[in-house]
């Protein structure tokens, strides 16, 4: 008997007492906190992202380029990665600020090696969903965010998220995401508490996380 057949046979024997078939529990319940208003949700999101010692900047749509450039200047970045599908006005702002741009064309075009990525200071991306109760940003690595390695190897990540992308609780985000995409949930900069449970920001992922929240209300 193959390992597969043997394990499945063991598991069938082990569950022979179960009278029901799969799906016995019925609908998957959605247990989520709710919010009185979008304003309250966005305020909570901003508070919780900041709690992780990420830098949060709220701005109006026409200020995004300037805020991205300012965040890169604070991080003392000289070279910056721009995914293929990034908003042209943000790219222009970084270029005007005198940064060297490195492009990564994604699946079809030329891609940087891991060593080349290691030589880049920062990366700028969009996002897919934000979660207020946890202060989380979710990337689904579509062209405005780039493949997974881009937001991992450089030491600074500047992430731009629109107010209308922020949902209140975890189940709201799960419902919006496309499971066939690779997904990265980011809650603050890389951290460890492995030494005497003292939190240290920055181990292997970006040590600096800047979140630019674009709010049409300004």
């Amino acid at each position: 008997m193959s390992a597969r057949e043997e394990i499945l046979a063991r598991l069938r024997a082990a569950t022979a007492d179960v009278p029901t078939g799969p799906g016995a529990r019925g609908e998957v319940p959605t247990i989520a906190a709710t919010s009185a208003s979008d304003v309250e949700t966005l305020d909570l999101f901003v508070d919780h992202v900041a709690d992780y010692r990420a830098t949060v900047i709220r701005c109006s749509p026409d200020q995004v380029g300037a805020e991205v450039a300012a965040a890169l200047a604070r991080g003392r970045a000289h070279t910056v990665l721009v995914p293929d599908g990034l908003d042209a006005s943000w790219v222009a702002a970084a270029q005007t600020a005198g940064l060297t741009l490195r492009r990564d064309a994604g699946a079809d075009g030329e891609r940087l090696s891991a060593d080349e990525l290691d030589g880049v200071d920062a990366v700028v991306t969009a996002a897919r969903v934000g979660i207020a109760t946890t202060g989380t940003i979710v990337l689904d690595h579509t062209p405005d965010q780039g493949r997974r390695a881009l937001t991992l190897v450089p030491d600074q990540h500047v992430c731009v998220i629109r107010a209308d992308q922020v949902v209140h609780d975890v189940p709201d985000a799960v419902a919006l995401l496309e499971p066939s995409r690779p997904l990265t949930w980011i809650s603050g900069p890389s951290a460890t508490s492995d030494i005497e449970l003292d939190r240290v920001e920055g181990v292997h992922g970006p040590r600096t996380l800047d979140v630019v929240v674009v709010d049409p209300r300004g």
Binding site: H141, R148, P179, S180, P182, L183, W185, G188
Partner: peptide, 17 residues
């Protein structure tokens, strides 16, 4: 409230990972 990183992958994504 949430751990810093959660990764999800569904098999292979061409050009990514």
């Amino acid at each position: 409230r949430m751990n810093p990183y959660t990764s999800m992958w569904s098999g292979i994504t061409p050009g990514d990972g």
